[in-house]
Simulated assay, not measured.
Amino acid sequence: MLFSCVHVACYRNSNKRSLLKMMSSEGPIKGPRPLVVCGPSGSGKTTLLKKLFEEFPHTFGFSISHTTRAPRAGEEHGVHYYFIDKNKMNEQIDNNEFIETAVFSGNIYGTTKNEVCNIQKSGKVCVLDIEPQGVEQIKKTDLNPILVYNNPPSLKDLELRLRKRQTESEESLQKRLAAADQEIAYGLTEGNFHKIIHNVGIDESYKEFKEFIVKELKAQEDTGVVIRWE
Score class of each variant (00 low, 15 high):
residue 1 M to F: 10
residue 5 C to M: 06
residue 6 V to I: 07
residue 9 A to E: 10
residue 13 N to F: 11
residue 16 K to A: 15
residue 23 M to E: 11
residue 28 P to T: 08
residue 28 P to R: 15
residue 31 G to V: 02
residue 31 G to M: 11
residue 34 P to K: 02
residue 37 V to I: 13
residue 39 G to R: 01
residue 41 S to M: 10
residue 46 T to D: 11
residue 47 T to A: 02
residue 53 F to Y: 04
residue 58 H to E: 15
residue 60 F to T: 00
residue 61 G to R: 09
residue 62 F to Q: 03
residue 63 S to C: 14
residue 66 H to T: 08
residue 69 R to F: 10
residue 70 A to D: 06
residue 71 P to G: 14
residue 73 A to L: 07
residue 74 G to Q: 13
residue 77 H to P: 11
residue 79 V to T: 15
residue 80 H to A: 07
residue 81 Y to M: 10
residue 84 I to M: 11
residue 85 D to S: 10
residue 88 K to I: 07
residue 98 F to I: 03
residue 98 F to W: 01
residue 99 I to T: 09
residue 100 E to K: 04
residue 103 V to D: 12
residue 104 F to R: 08
residue 109 Y to A: 03
residue 115 E to W: 04
residue 116 V to R: 06
residue 116 V to A: 09
residue 117 C to W: 10
residue 117 C to P: 00
residue 120 Q to R: 06
residue 124 K to S: 11
residue 129 D to S: 07
residue 132 P to L: 14
residue 133 Q to I: 02
residue 137 Q to G: 07
residue 143 L to C: 05
residue 145 P to L: 02
residue 146 I to H: 02
residue 146 I to P: 00
residue 147 L to T: 04
residue 153 P to H: 00
residue 153 P to C: 06
residue 153 P to G: 01
residue 156 K to T: 05
residue 156 K to N: 08
residue 160 L to N: 13
residue 160 L to H: 01
residue 162 L to E: 04
residue 164 K to D: 03
residue 164 K to F: 04
residue 167 T to V: 07
residue 171 E to Q: 04
residue 173 L to E: 01
residue 177 L to C: 04
residue 178 A to P: 05
residue 178 A to F: 10
residue 181 D to S: 15
residue 189 T to W: 02
residue 192 N to E: 12
residue 193 F to N: 03
residue 199 N to K: 08
residue 200 V to N: 14
residue 211 E to S: 07
residue 213 I to C: 08
residue 214 V to H: 04
residue 221 E to T: 07
residue 223 T to A: 11
residue 223 T to L: 15
residue 226 V to E: 15
residue 229 W to P: 08
